[in-house]
Amino acid sequence: MISPRTLRNLRSELSRSLLAKLGIAILAVILFTAVFAPLLAPHDPTEQDLDNANIPPLGFTATENQTTSQMVDGEVQIVEEEVVVNTTVAHPLGTDSLGRDVLSRTMFGARTSLLVGLFGTSIAVVLGVTVGITAGYYGGRIDDALMRFADVMLAFPSLVLAIALIGLWGQASLRIPDPLVELGIASSEMPSDIVLPGTVIAVVALVNWVWFARVARGEALSVRDQEYVKAARSMGGSDLHVILRHVLPNSLTPILVLATIQVAAIILLESSLSFLGFSGAQLSWGFDIAQGRDYLSSSWWIATVPGLAIVAAVVGINLIGDWLRDALDPGIEGQGGAP
């Protein structure tokens, strides 16, 4: 389905658009970090060091109220004093309330977020587009049945639905041994497994497929009345041919754009689930934000760093979505189609 022509369009649009390059750069950095986290992270992200808790990132200072008891003249005196916490090069982005390295945690957290975001969106796209295009193309009873079901799904608040499903299925997750650690390339102190949160992926997909179904149905509805669909049928093209060759490609642009938005939404949903403690993930941006929330007034960086990571990921993916949209739609003059 990807013709040389399409590739050429992608390339020419990329050379034209600074934002597309930026998006690719951001996502590349995040992907690279996620894959090579055990090599890049300075510390084991799960290692606690209570003596070095709440250290601020380099270049920032923080004070901490310290309560000490002293024996003065045979009496116990409680002294409160403000202590300046020193930053250290060992923890460039600081540590959290248990003394875990924030940089390392954010690096490892990218794995969970990206896995959930990409797998969850893919499943949601496949499911939603299949249902939506079937409903839109065939119409009638099939359409009614499928879309009423979709409406029912849509009527549930997504977070509630997700929590209910997790409650129903439990927190199944798959532990895949990390080849970097396994092969001894990375330090054996690093976590030895990549956790693939199966339930969370299934749940975010089930919560989000409806959006794809609705958009795909709308597109299929308008495409199926085009004369080129009639033409394909008059040539003897089967329903499958018409759907795969005409309806799907011509419905894809808004679905693609929606997918980039949904990747971001799914990363956020995963964060919410982790934040609420439902995902079972101990190493995720959302989980870290939840942890850091309690310390926002004193140790803002614990929640802010993973928060910035989420923002970067979402922005990067959206920029890539814009690039794909411009490059893949030859009908939009001057935007990426050939002159």
Binding site: Q226, E227, Y228, S234, G236, N250
Partner: peptide, 19 residues
């Protein structure tokens, strides 16, 4: 029959798949 009989449509814009 689908091979022996063909149709040519009216609308030059929507009768060809833009992709």
């Amino acid at each position: 029959f689908r091979r022996r009989a063909q149709v040519m449509f009216q609308d030059p814009f929507s009768s060809l798949d833009p992709r």
